[in-house]
């Protein structure tokens, strides 16, 4: 199979205007991936599947990924004109900004016909709240059908063009997306006190009368 750089160049030539970024991988696995503009995702996917040299006919794995908003501390250098004739005064100032979070979907593509892979595609949503839709790749690979439903269920990515986008592992009446990093689990599930502070504290919060202090203390 051609090198990732060559593939990137070929894709860029084929899809002018698509933003296509080669994402490096710091681990020894060396599995690099392509981050693709969602607007072009399905076209690129179809091309990868139908291109006779690549023939990526199998989408093996669909993974959701959550990156919450995070604070970034940056050092900003400001230079002001100093005394006349002298050098400008440079002051350093630290500022924090919120890097907006996003949801990401990663597709691992292999070729059964030509026995190569993986080619890894990734696409990001605009944010984690109202711009969470991405084009579905189920029309390209049927194997995405259940896996995209799972990503929808657990991460809340809405796949446009998915034939049957419903919850798959959680029940239909469930609210929230449990795999998101900021998901707070409810405290009213069937609890059993254990020797651990966390569970016990949660149980006491929810059932103040039932979990009397000392009820679940380990009795050495």
């Amino acid at each position: 199979m051609e090198s990732p750089e060559a593939l990137r160049d070929r894709l860029l030539a084929r899809f002018p205007g698509a933003s296509l970024e080669l994402v490096a991988n710091g681990s020894p696995s060396g599995q690099v991936s392509f981050r693709i503009d969602p607007a072009f995702l399905r076209e690129v996917a179809r091309f990868l599947r139908d291109d006779p040299e690549l023939a990526l006919d199998q989408c093996s794995n669909v993974t959701g990924l959550d990156s919450p908003d995070r604070e970034v501390v940056e050092t900003v250098k400001e230079s002001q004109p100093g005394a006349p004739g002298g050098p400008p005064v440079v002051t350093e100032r630290k500022q924090t900004r919120i890097a907006p979070g996003h949801l990401e979907v990663i597709y691992h593509l292999y070729s059964v016909a030509r026995r190569h892979g993986p080619v890894i595609l990734r696409a990001r949503t605009g944010n984690r709240t109202d711009a969470v839709s991405l084009p579905s790749l189920t029309p390209v690979w049927r194997s995405c059908e259940f896996q995209e439903r799972e990503v929808f269920d657990l991460y809340g990515v809405v796949f446009e063009g998915h034939p049957d986008l419903r919850r798959i592992l959680m029940w239909d009446a469930f609210t929230g997306h449990p795999m998101r990093k900021d998901y707070v689990e409810p405290d009213d599930y069937e609890w059993e006190p254990t020797p651990h502070g966390d569970v016990l504290a949660k149980a006491r919060r929810h059932y103040p009368s039932a979990a009397a202090p000392g009820a679940a203390q380990p009795s050495p």
Partner: peptide, 19 residues
């Protein structure tokens, strides 16, 4: 080190992989 890896083997039921 920070990075990612997908490993797969031929399990008795098919391709079992961990990402």
């Amino acid at each position: 080190k920070a990075g990612e890896a997908y490993g797969r083997i031929e399990g008795p039921k098919g391709e079992i992989g961990f990402f």
